[in-house]
């Protein structure tokens, strides 16, 4: 609550001083806890919400949040609907061809397979669900398993529960609460796989100045240890070494 008040106050004062102060629009998916999600108040919440607000404060930028579906999150950045992607996006060479990335603000998260209890380990080569346009989707595609894609992450889990898919491949941090809260219905299957690099913010290739500002802000948070604290808070005590 306090944080929201500060941001509003900050926004109000900045709007007063210069009516044309550039507002930076942060684009996120709002469906990928703990990275980002829409809470019961209807507000964007999660690790990236808190991180994004903090980074804007450090970089002295006025920021607003925009929700956008995952599968069009890159095209809509490029066409200028918002200025930054901050949506649990792994830094990959393929994406780097269309957009630019900041330095990582979350280390490479291993991906895990989730399945119904009692599923045999070779299900990872059967029908595997993944969210469209994710690193996991391309991994499954290349692994020889049959890929079924879904627009939102929670549909992939629903697919496993319905028996439509044998397993889901997604970030470990996203799947963890589903397994823990399923009462034994859902399990992790087989070993975890390391796909893609760390998680970074996405920018238009022409936006080098904005990217530099956020890079500097991330640097500051890495140096003073506040980034590690934030990660531990949202990712169940996970210790990152920044």
């Amino acid at each position: 609550m306090n944080k929201i008040l500060t941001t509003t106050l900050l926004a109000a004062t900045m709007a007063a001083t210069s009516a044309f102060a550039d507002t930076v629009r942060l684009g996120t998916e709002g469906a990928y806890p703990p990275y980002n999600f829409v809470n019961d108040k209807g507000e964007i919440d999660g690790y990236e919400r808190e991180l994004g607000d903090k980074l804007c404060e450090i970089a002295k930028l006025e920021c607003t949040w925009v929700k956008n579906d995952w599968d069009t999150i890159i095209p809509n950045l490029v066409s200028g609907n918002y200025d930054v992607i901050i949506a649990g996006m792994s830094i990959t060479a393929e994406r780097d061809e269309t957009i630019d990335f900041s330095q990582e603000y979350y280390p490479a998260d291993p991906s895990a397979f989730l399945a119904l209890a009692g599923t045999k380990d070779d299900a990872v080569n059967g029908i595997v669900a993944a969210q469209t346009a994710t690193v996991q989707a391309s991994y499954v595609n290349e692994s020889g398993a049959t890929l079924v894609e879904f627009a939102t992450p929670d549909e992939t889990i629903a697919a496993v529960k319905n028996g439509e898919a044998d397993a889901v491949l997604a970030d470990d941090a996203y799947l963890k609460p589903f397994v823990e809260e399923s009462g034994g219905e859902l399990i992790f299957l087989g070993p975890k796989v390391q796909i893609g690099g760390g998680v970074g913010m996405g920018f238009r290739e022409s936006d080098t100045e904005l990217k530099a500002k956020f890079d500097a802000a991330i640097d500051m948070m890495k140096k003073d240890g506040s980034l590690n604290e934030l990660i531990a808070k949202w990712f169940d005590g996970y210790q990152a070494n920044y």
């Binding site: 709002g30 999600f37 829409v38 019961d40 929700k67 929670d154 889990i157 529960k161 589903f178 809260e181």
Partner: peptide, 25 residues
């Protein structure tokens, strides 16, 4: 546009304990 279909899908999706009101799909 955030219409009724958008909110139905958003609210209906399974919610873990990151939310105040967790529920299945």
């Amino acid at each position: 546009v955030e219409d009724i279909v958008y909110w139905a899908r958003e609210l209906g999706g399974a919610k873990t304990s990151y939310f105040e009101y967790p529920h299945p799909d």
